[in-house]
Nucleic acid binder design. Structure first.
Lengths: 193, 193
DNA sequence: ACCTGAACACCGTTCAAGT
DNA sequence: ACCTGAACACCGTTCAAGT
């Protein structure tokens, strides 16, 4: 039977790379350090991934996939559109809870211009699925399609910014307080004023 | 008489370093490339700045100082608190206009944990003066001190997030559209609902 | 199939040596 | 006072050589 201790080398590399990238970004992902964590030499990494760019793209792809699953779960659990919107920031908060890590894709967005193309593509996928989920929820709440798209982008950008700022201060309470302000201002409201 | 052509070496280094850091962040600031742009060798940079950390801190310090001046100018020009809030995103938009560059300090916020302490300190100063300016304007608009502080942080985080997202898409119109959404939602409103 | 040591061109940084 | 070439320990990456 499978268990976590018997994870394949490729899986162990991917997991460690995700952890490092969430803390230090693409540029801060050091292959010698990564290899040491996995228990092999840096040169051996190339037997599992053709390059650092491919490894990072795989990390980002799985991150985006996991996000889709999480968002779908929220949509299923939380009945109403309003409940969905209230719970949306959870996904960003969770990263901060784990050693002040940050949403992988928001993080890499800062390095965006210097990222390999295949990593850039995955960052865009992550942003797109988030905006699409938000737009869908907002539409279900009664907002017209085009307006829901615009509002979805605004919510995604705002929550990303909150996460980035809270990380700089290493203060989750700051994240919660900013989200509360957004809610009080009506940014998450599913109906237009 | 002074003119731009006769700028000192220190000033030329600072200007070039600011440009590079805005485009590539701290990690992407390459001393050999920087030196070449200025017309000297990398080793010569150390005659003007004791280290890359000190150079970056000087860049960030001047960036924060310039922001203070810009915000004060806005406060003087725009009479009402509402006009101030409407114009606030200008400072972030300006960076995007210039070759899709980004607010230096929002950028470095992503690299935050890996930055030298003296650079971190300047990033915090930048965030603090922005939040203080916003809180001040909001108070003048009739919001109580504590609530104004919270709202100021929310606006700063939201506008930073909009800038980061627009940069990833290399699309200033996206920035404008997100800011409009914020305004429509009432995030910039100087009075509580 | 997977791992490795040694090498490559690159980084920030130092330093002795030049003007 | 300012500049430089050469060297240092570090990066991603390659490759011949091992099991």
């Amino acid at each position: 039977m499978d268990n976590k201790a018997s994870a394949s080398s490729g899986e162990k590399i991917l997991a460690a790379a995700t952890r490092i990238a969430q803390a230090h970004g693409y540029g801060g992902l050091n292959l010698r350090t990564l290899a040491e964590e996995v228990g092999i030499k840096a040169a051996s990494l190339y037997h599992h991934f053709p390059s650092k760019a491919d490894l990072a793209a795989a990390v980002a792809r799985r991150y985006a996939d996991d996000s889709v699953a999480t968002l779908e779960a929220i949509a299923t659990e939380a009945g109403s559109p309003d409940a969905c919107l209230r719970r949306y920031p959870e996904t960003f908060r969770r990263s901060l809870e784990r050693d002040n890590r940050i949403c992988l894709c928001s993080f890499m967005a800062a390095e965006y211009d210097d990222l390999p193309a295949e990593v850039q593509a995955q960052i865009q996928v992550f942003a797109d699925v988030n905006v699409a989920w938000l737009a869908n929820v907002l539409q279900a709440g009664g907002i017209k399609r085009e307006a829901a798209e615009l509002r979805g982008r605004a919510i995604f950008a705002a929550v990303s910014g909150a996460q980035l700022m809270a990380r700089g201060r290493a203060d989750i309470a700051l994240f919660d307080s900013i989200i509360e302000s957004y809610q009080a201002a009506g940014l998450f409201a599913s109906a237009n004023p």
